[in-house]
Each structure stands twice: as C-alpha cells, then as structure tokens.
Design a protein around this nucleic acid. Structure first.
Length: 715
RNA sequence: GGGCGAUUAGCUCAGUUGGUUAGAGCGCACGCUUCACACGCGUGAGGUCACAGGUUCGAAUCCUGUAUCGCCCACCA
C-alpha cells in the first residue's frame, strides 16, 4: 500500500498537482476526449458556457457555488461519455470595471477620468482588467473547474466585437435599434445613463411641500422636489376632479424664484386625485411621467433646468446651485412670499445607481434604444414575444418552476431597453456620422466620418454569450455541435439582466433558444445570514478557503443542503466538516487497501455480499437520476451518508471479522466487494470532490483506467 | 400597490409523485488512547412539521384562510 495513506489527507499539497495533471491530459477539451477514445465522435453533446466573471477583482463564494454546481454536472456528463464542453471566458463589465478603476484613480492619484482622457483611461482599465483576469483564472483552477481553456474568450476581444457589431447592424436594419430623445436615468456620480434594471430604490423620509406658484395662481400643488418647479410648464389634474374643472384649459404666468414660468392647466387621467392636493406640477424635462403627460398634451419638453452634474441651470438665485441647495433656497423664497401652505413628512423611494450609489436625475437625452414592442419585419412578432415563446412552448424550462412566473411578469412589463452608456470602457457603438449621413455596423472606408462617442450597455454583449463564444457570426463546427447549450447556471439576481437578454438576443440572431434549462442558484450568505460584502468584511475568498480546507470541502459545503433558487448560509465550520469527510474517504481507502492486500479477489460474491453490491448499484442509479434532474444537493447528501454511515460505520466494521476469519471464500468475496465498492464510490463522488477522489484513484494498485476524470460512470 | 417564496430538532437546512416509526450536519450530554481514521468511535436526549379548517384509507407534502418573516417588480407628483 502507498505509504501516503498512513498520514492524513493533505488537500493543499494534492490539489494543485492534480489540476496540473488534468490540464496536461487535455481532457477538458472534448476533441481530446474523442481522440483518446474517452468519448465517441458521435456521442451526444453536453455544453455549458461559464457565466463570465466580471474582471473587477476576484471571485467570491457565489462564484464558488456556481463553479461547484457546473463542474459537478460537467464531470458527470463527461464520465457518462458525452462530448462535454464547458467554455470559459470573462466579462469586461463596462460600468462596473471602469468605476472600480476610476475610484482607484481618484483615491491614489486624485485624478478623474477627464484628467486622463479617453485613451489613457482605457489603458489603465485594460491593465486592471488583465490583472483581474489572471487572478480569476487562478481561482477558477483552484476550485477544480474542468474548463476547456483552449476555447477561452473575453466579451471585449476581437471576435466578440465582431459579433456585437453584427447583431447591432441586424437589429438596426430591422428597425429595432433606434436613436431617441427620452427621459433617461442619469447617474450624476457615474456621469452616464443607466437602464431601469440598474436602479436600486432606497426608502427614505422626505418632506412633501404644498405651495402655489404665485399669489393669484388658483391651484395649490404638492411636491417633494420644489427646486424642479422652475421647470414646470403645466399643472395636471384628474379630468373628473370637480374642484379644478373650471381651470382646465386656462394659462397662467408667474415668476417663480426669479424664473419666469408659463403654466397650462391640463386634465390627465394619470393624476391621482387622492394624493396631495390632487394637482401635479408638470416638469417634463425632469420626470418620466411628466414627460409623458407633456407629450399627451403637446406641451414643451425643452425646459431643462438641471444639468448632468445635478446643478441648476436657471438664471437668478438658483443658478449653479446643487439641487439639494436649491431646494432650501426655493423653500426659503416660498416662505418669504407666503406661498408655502403645508410641509409634511412622507415616505419616498429614492432611485439610486447600483454601481455608484448616485441619486438618479431624470434627464432628457438622445440615446440608443432597443424596441421590444415593435414587430420584427418578416417575422410578425416582437422581441417581447420572442422572449416569452420558448418558455411557453417548453423549449426552455426552469429547474425551479417559481421563476417562470417571475420571468413572465417581468417580460410583460418590459419597456424599451436603453443600450447606450456615456462611459469609455466597452464596445463603442458601431455607428458613424458624417453630416446628415449615418453608417452602421462597420466603419466606412472613406474620409470624414466620426464614430458615436458612447459605448454599449455591457449586457448587450453578454446577451450574445452562448453563441458569440462558439464563433458566430461564422458558421463554425463548434456552433453547430454545441449550440443551443444544454444549461445555463447562474444566480437568480441576474435573471433579468442576463438570462432574459440571452433569450432575446439568441432568438433574434439565430432563431433558437440559447439553452434548454435554466438552473438558478441563490445567494451565498455568511453564518448569520448576512450578505457577504466588503463593508462588513465577511467575505470568504475561495483561495483562502481552498488553502485552509481544500477545494473539495468547499464544493461539498456549498452543494449539500442547498436547493436551487434558495439562499444559503456558509461558515468555516460547515466547510471543515467536509474536509473531515475527505479525510474519512482517505482512511476508508487505507483500510480497504491494507486489509485486502494479498487477499485473492473472488469471482463470485457470497449472498450477503451480492446484496451489498445491489445496494450500491441502487445508490448509483439514484445518484444518476438525481444528477440528471439537477437534484445535486440530494445526490451529494446520499453519497456522503452512504460513505460514512453505511460503508465506514457498518460495512467496514462487519468486514473486520470476515477478513480475519477462517472462511477463505467469504474473505475473497468480501475483499472483492470492498475493492469494487471503493472503485464505484470514487467514481460517484468524483464530480463532487474531484481532487481527493482522483488522488486516491491513482494510488490504488492495478488501476485499469488511468485518469478518474474520464473513467466510465457506473451504470 | 402587484407578484414570488419561506415557516420542520437549540442552530443551519434536506425531505423527489401524498405512503412504514419525519432525516442530516453542527451543537449538546455521557462514555471511549477499540490494531482505517481523535479530521475519530459508541450511546443518548431533543420535533404538536407556524396556526385554523378542509380533501383523503393515509397529509410536513394537496386545497382554503390567518399570522409572521424574506425577496422581486412597480412607484404618488
């Protein structure tokens, strides 16, 4: 017996060595598996694209969970003989990455992006992205991820750029991408537009003020943002509100806090007569709803009073003031003029930007949009319909069915998607202007063209991920073999951002689904159930965890008892438990090898041993069925339980007298049973705990299959 | 305001299509230097499955309602 078994299992020494061995074997690449006979050339395929981690730093435990689940499924399928592809890549994560670099720049050098300029900033961001990428790859390998590195991609590399330009052009030609002036969510801190999905609402107490524009203005108006009232063009009331009907259609002039304003009184059904005074001051340039009201009543949109830095642009005492300062000044002025009628507390949800925390300032801006409710020429359907159909037809199914309703509900309320961003890192919008002319897709060859300054929302390129990574728009063998992919596995928090956008993009560009099954995992929280975050300092780094307990232990701890779609708690104690389990398996092996060394292995089992062999076959079947149905938590728990409490506690114990006994036939049968059981169990456990099982496997004498990772799955 | 989910042992959670006596890990108590393993072994305590009705031969599981907690979406000026 290998002397190594005399000491406890040491994952830190083992894991990097084993990973190097796997990598060297080339079996992460399905082509190598075929060449080596580990998969048949015509075997069915199984493919997953790795949800590309953002190059914003390093991986956290949520990523570790994702890797554990995906690697387990991939290894399972590979051992079953599928042509299995798990394709790695990273995401440039435009806003997220640029804002990390900008923050660093500010902190370390006290400079802004404008001090550096576009080109220099991009150099900095790219350097940072490269560094992050390398860290992330190291972490992925540490977790044991059997990714095909020969096919690695990046959302911003040349091939992916090409895919982005191609889809953009196709959508533009189909009339689905358009440029339009609308109220956008402007983040004054990040100096960019963001989409509705990037908004986080924070509940706060705010003051609701009731006032009149002037002494002779007949209708009192309630507002939480008095400073915007210098931009008002109308007062809207409900059409049935008898209090105000007599004023509808009338116009008034006033000088509001040094600013001359002209107010139309209009009737609009969107006004709630119960709220405030039942009358809304309409500020078209600084409120989405007001913009719509103004459109319905042909009122001016152009009355902009706040700029991109959230400062007032009107002449007079407010000029150049921040909105918050201006608010105070307006209240002061209202009081001094005797126009303020009431001041009360109200609860308010304030819109903030997810990445920067800046308070969103609605502003009218010329932006690029994707129309989701417009019929696609030649297809008779809208993008929204394309997003719903595969779910309805059952071509895509959710592992946790509750998400189907959530998804539908989101789609039904979907509005046009704003895809342009005023940041520099990302895919530059593939549009060029020359006077009145416009060119889309590829840069024109001739002189005088200027490219659009903006970049694309990062989710535009992520939406193409399942097929851009396989070589589209070229028709590659990979694309036809591995697309649609079998599974997408990611956190439920990016169902809308990403999963929905992949369905949209793939249905549009390829007319197929991007994947057949959606497996959404929950959040990984700390032992107290809190979100892991930098500010709380309760983050666990997969690298540290692997160094302390081994990647195998981390993987098991993340999978056992964790049902898809549900948040879980993780603690070092739990992970330690599975480190012990790896050691238990190690010692089981030691026992079996020691006690069967030199014992002749029987050809036939005794009746008792045949029963145990059947029990094991039943377990194998059970685990297989669980994995095929994505019940990973159950499979893992069953294996744990069998290994420790059936095999070690019972079978090994009752084997002791048999192996030391006089009955040679029983001894030979039991020896063979134990060796067979160990082999089978190592195979069954390998997808979950790849390192320790592989290490043991290679130290068992007379092993017929060399690498456990491509050994045949028990059937 | 609309939607989704949860409530099972002290704690964290499983429990697949309704089917024996409801399980695991951790923790706890007691005892073990037993020749695979103290990263261990043995024994044990601990549950009205949130509550109230209903369906059923049978309910933690299905239905209705209530309570509490959590999350998502929308958002009132």
């Amino acid at each position: 017996m290998d002397e190594k078994f005399l000491k406890p299992y040491d994952p830190t020494e083992t894991e990097p060595r084993i990973y190097a061995q796997w990598e060297q074997s080339g079996f992460f690449n399905p082509d190598t598996c075929i060449a080596a006979g580990a998969a048949k050339p015509d075997a069915p395929t199984f493919s997953i694209v790795l949800p590309p981690p953002n190059v914003t730093g390093r991986l956290h435990m949520g990523h570790a969970l994702m890797l554990a689940v995906e690697d387990t499924l991939v290894r399972f399928k590979r051992m079953q003989g599928f042509r299995t592809l798990w394709l790695p890549g990273t995401d440039h994560a435009a806003i997220a990455t640029q804002s990390v670099v900008e923050k660093k720049l500010k902190k370390e050098e006290g400079r802004s992006r404008h001090d550096l300029g576009r080109e220099e900033l991009l150099k900095r961001v790219e350097a940072f992205a490269t560094e992050s990428h390398d860290t992330i790859v190291k972490q992925l390998k540490t977790m044991g991820a059997s990714l095909d590195w020969s096919r690695e991609t990046f959302t911003l590399d040349e091939a992916r750029n090409k895919a982005v330009r191609t889809v953009f052009k196709q959508m533009y030609d189909a009339g689905l991408i358009y440029r339009g002036l609308r109220i956008v969510n402007w983040d004054p801190k990040g100096q960019t537009t963001i989409s509705d999905d990037e908004i986080v609402y924070e509940e706060r107490t705010a003051k609701l003020y009731t006032f009149r524009y002037s002494k002779d203005f007949p209708i009192p108006v309630a507002t939480t943002r008095p400073e915007t009232k210098v931009g008002d063009v109308a007062v809207a009331v409900h059409p049935d509100d008898t209090r105000y009907q007599q004023y509808v259609g009338k116009e008034y002039d006033a000088v509001f806090c040094d600013v001359p304003i002209h107010i139309n009184v209009v009737a609009d059904k969107d006004v709630d007569p119960e709220f405030g005074t039942g009358a809304v001051g309409v500020t078209p340039a600084h409120s989405k709803i007001d913009w719509e009201i103004a459109e319905r009543h042909n009122l001016s949109h152009e009355n902009i009073v706040i700029n991109e830095y959230a400062k007032m642009t009107v002449p007079g005492r407010l000029e150049g003031k921040k909105t918050t300062e201006a608010r105070e000044l307006v209240i002061e002025w209202l009081k001094s003029e005797g126009l303020l009628e009431k001041e009360e507390d109200t609860r308010q949800n304030i819109a903030t930007a997810e990445r920067t925390g800046g308070i969103i300032e609605p502003l009218p801006k010329l932006q690029w949009w994707i129309a989701v409710n417009k019929e696609i020429p030649g297809r008779g359907k809208t993008l929204k319909e394309l997003m719903l159909e595969p779910i309805e037809r059952g071509e895509i199914r959710f592992v946790s069915e509750q998400f189907e309703k959530v998804y539908r509900h989101w789609i039904e309320n979907l509005r046009d998607w704003c895809i342009s961003r005023q940041i520099w890192y990302g895919h530059r919008i593939p549009v060029w202007y020359r006077g009145e002319e416009i060119a889309v897709g590829e840069a024109p060859e001739d002189e005088g063209w200027t490219q659009d300054e903006d970049t694309l929302d990062t989710w535009f390129s992520s939406g193409l991920w399942t097929f851009s990574t396989l070589g589209w728009p070229e028709t590659t063998p990979d694309l036809s073999a591995y697309h649609p992919t079998d599974l997408i596995e990611t956190g439920y928090d990016i169902l809308f951002f990403w999963v929905a956008r992949m369905i949209l993009m793939t249905e549009f560009a390829l007319g197929t689904v991007p994947f057949k099954t959606i497996y959404l995992h929950g959040l990984v929280r700390d032992a107290q159930g809190r979100k892991m975050s930098k500010s709380l300092g309760n983050n666990l780094d997969p690298l540290d965890i692997a160094a302390k307990f081994g990647a195998d232990a981390a993987r098991m701890a993340l999978m056992v008892g964790n049902t898809p779609g549900t948040d879980m708690r993780i603690s070092e104690d739990k992970i330690k438990g599975y480190k012990h389990f790896a050691n238990k398996l190690w010692n089981i092996t030691r026992f079996i090898l020691e006690r069967t060394e030199g014992v002749e292995l029987a050809a036939e089992f005794t009746q008792a041993d045949a029963a145990i062999r059947d029990e094991l076959s039943a377990l194998a079947k059970d685990v297989t069925a669980d994995l095929e149905a994505y019940r990973i938590h159950l499979a893992a728990e069953k294996l744990y339980h069998f290994t420790w409490h059936r095999l070690a506690d019972e079978i090994l114990e009752e084997s002791k007298p048999i192996l030391l006994g006089e009955d040679a036939a029983a001894r030979a049968s039991r020896a063979r049973l134990l060796r067979d059981t160990l082999d089978t169990l190592l195979k069954l456990l390998h997808p979950f705990m790849p390192f320790v099982t592989e290490e043991i496997w290679q130290r068992i004498p007379n092993q017929s299959e060399k690498l456990l990772m491509v050994a045949a799955w028990p059937r």
